[in-house]
């Protein structure tokens, strides 16, 4: 598609997309945030007609959900459809259809892969003795290069592809990015486990019994999956509370 047919207002939408979850709610989820982020594009299209603008805002405030980093794909595509004067019903159906994949892909790629990968690598730096500010700086910079890159790319993709983002996303195959990052994440997790074991001040310096207990706990998590999380956290809190009580009573 040539440049001139693309709607304007992209930078404003990109900035506002950072606030798309500003009013996250159980009724429309990101619905009103979606309209809020789309406003720069809508104002350019309907700026002269307050009634048409109000109706457009109302349409785009309906229920919407997506991963926040991938929501710009939908914002861009819908800005494009609006500026191409596609009919209201088609836009509504597009908005409905795009929710599912943008949520699922984002959860897999960002929450289940990119975030743990950067967090695990930063924790490895910490246990390898890198000073705190360096660890935090590395985490924030690296993580957000991926984060903001995804937002900018997504908005561009949406504006460029319009209704055909489905075909473009199939070709790009974000799921395969996630699978490619999983190998490095497994290695990083291994390194982190090793570092927590052997670093100065780590488990092995406390004693072999603690290392063995931690190995048992690791296996509990490995077998139980997410069901094991809350019981483990509560057992930790319980054990520490017990030690404290023992201190008061003795």
């Amino acid at each position: 598609m040539s440049h001139d047919t693309r709607p304007r207002g992209g930078f404003g939408m990109l900035m506002r997309s950072l606030l798309i979850q500003g009013a996250w709610n159980y009724r429309t989820m990101l619905g009103s945030g979606f309209a809020f982020a789309l406003l720069p594009a809508l104002k350019r299209l309907y700026g002269n007609d307050p009634n048409a603008l109000a109706r457009a805002i109302e349409r785009h405030s309906e229920h919407f959900n997506a991963h926040p980093y991938l929501a710009p794909i939908a914002l861009g595509a819908i800005a494009r459809l609006e500026s191409d004067q596609v009919d209201v019903e088609t836009i509504r159906r597009f908005r409905t259809a795009v929710r599912g994949p943008l949520g699922g892909l984002g959860d897999t790629l960002v929450w289940a892969t990119w975030l743990p990968l950067v967090a695990v690598c930063s924790l490895v730096l910490y246990w390898f003795g890198v000073p705190g500010w360096g660890v935090v700086l590395a985490f924030v910079l690296v993580y957000n290069v991926g984060h903001l890159g995804l937002r900018v790319w997504g908005l561009w993709l949406g504006l460029d592809a319009g209704r055909d983002v489905g075909a473009r996303l199939t070709a790009v195959d974000l799921g395969s990015w996630a699978r490619r990052l999983q190998g490095p994440l497994v290695i990083g997790l291994g390194v982190l486990c090793g570092a927590v074991l052997s670093a100065p001040g780590g488990l092995s310096s406390i004693g072999p019994a603690w290392s063995a207990l931690a190995a048992v706990a690791f296996v509990l998590g490995l077998v139980g999956g997410h069901r094991a999380w809350r019981p483990a956290a509560m057992a930790t809190v319980g054990a520490i509370a017990f030690i404290g009580l023992w201190g008061i009573l003795s």
Binding site: L222, A232, A239
Partner: peptide, 30 residues
């Protein structure tokens, strides 16, 4: 009045946290 050595307290934390590391490997395919 904390009755135990700091290493014991830290040990408890590490053991609890090890469960999360196990869960992450579970999520990545076991």
């Amino acid at each position: 009045r904390w009755p135990v050595d700091p290493s014991v307290s830290t040990g408890v934390l590490y053991v609890g946290a090890a469960v999360s590391l196990g869960i992450l490997l579970h999520d990545l395919g076991g």
